[in-house]
Design a protein around this nucleic acid. Structure first.
Lengths: 213, 213
DNA sequence: CCTGCCATGTTGCCACCGTAAACATAGCGA
DNA sequence: TCGCTATGTTTACGGTGGCAACATGGCAGG
């Protein structure tokens, strides 16, 4: 009872770009539809990536997948749960991008900076997904078990702070500060209170602890 | 044509607590209702202050005010416009609180810190209002004229940065950094990814430019 | 004072939404 | 083969935002 119902694990999960054709009928060997739930989440992510997230909705998602609206209730208790799943998938992607940036930069201060920039860039590139991912998922009301995808992102940040500032008595406020900077910048850009500008983001994130090299 | 239709200016606008009885029929000399629009906005703020903002809605608001649902369309083109008005009022209140904190701290570095903390505290005290205020109000699609309430908040922040760090070649990234810190912290607290803790907030905000005295 | 205008508010309606209940279908184990 | 159960469909209900037609009442011009 701990194997297949918590993690979505659709093809575009972490590492594989997976240039599949459609998200509608991916596999061929399960039940009536194939793998609904995964298909629904894929459709949701697609809508989020293209639209502004306002045109989400049971009926629309169901239509995308080619299934009746109430069919989704076999896989999600209600719409909130579906959105939670989408949010989790979004956080997972964010974490993957950050890890990638960290590795590419070779860790250290450069890596720390790179993860921060990746954070903001993700918000800019996928506004609806980013917003959904963080607006959702409040207390443990919903999540009864299993780690959510957001932990990866925070752990990466924490590790980044630890490497960028090795001599620090209490890393907690520093980590929070760093997180707040990138998250706030991301949100302000999303809400059009600040314009996206790569070099500006570098400057602002670089101001954190004076890490800019 | 520039006198009375852009700013709401209900009793609880900026400075006056205004211990009025109800928000339903405030004045006595206008039209059928008195001053709808202001009454609707007051009702909306009340709902935002008490609930989580999910129970907003034309019908509910109209019921609060004691008016038919479609009556609101005489004052707002659609629901979005109504929410924009509420968002603007929220930003105005935030600006007022920041100004108050700034003055009380006597300006300077202490004032800068105080405005930042006031920003986060406002988000914590009025989550729904804060969230609405910043999630709304995207481009100039809606705002065809008039300054929005958010400018006050940002100008105060900018002034705070200028006073806290007088010798700075380019104040723009620094201002953005400071804004991002408080905004990000506020958002993370709102979304329950960080727990509210007054001293923690002080520490984190104080880390900005090492301003902590 | 009367009369008509126009801003304001009401009633009725429509499409859409989330979701619960009853029904249909199909794969799998006994 | 039979029937259980997971899956998907149909139908229906209350609620929503929003449009159109109608009612109302304060104010201006005669």
């Amino acid at each position: 009872m701990a194997g297949d119902d918590n993690s979505v694990n659709l093809e575009s999960g972490l590492a594989a770009p997976a240039p599949d054709a459609e998200g509608t009928v991916p596999r061929g060997g399960s039940y009536h539809h194939g793998d609904l739930r995964a298909a629904v989440i894929a459709a949701g992510m697609k809508r989020l990536a293209e639209g502004d997230g306002s045109d989400l909705g049971l009926r629309a998602l169901a239509r995308d997948v080619g299934v009746s609206a109430t069919a989704l209730y076999r896989h999600f208790p209600d719409k909130e749960a579906l959105l939670d799943a989408l949010a989790d998938e979004g956080l997972r992607r964010l974490g993957a991008l950050q890890a990638q940036a960290w590795l590419k930069a070779g860790g250290g201060k450069a890596g720390f900076l790179a993860t921060g920039i990746a954070y903001v860039r993700f918000a800019h590139d996928e506004p609806a997904i980013f917003r959904l991912s963080f607006t959702r998922q409040m207390p443990e009301r919903y999540r009864d078990g299993g780690a959510d995808g957001g932990e990866t992102a925070y752990h990466l940040l924490r590790a980044g702070v630890a490497q960028a500032l090795p001599d620090l008595d209490d890393p907690e406020p520093a980590s929070l500060h760093a997180w707040a900077v990138v998250h706030g910048l991301a949100m302000l850009i999303l809400d059009h209170r600040v314009e996206w500008d790569e070099t500006m983001v570098e400057k602002v994130v670089g101001l954190t602890f004076g890490v800019a090299e």
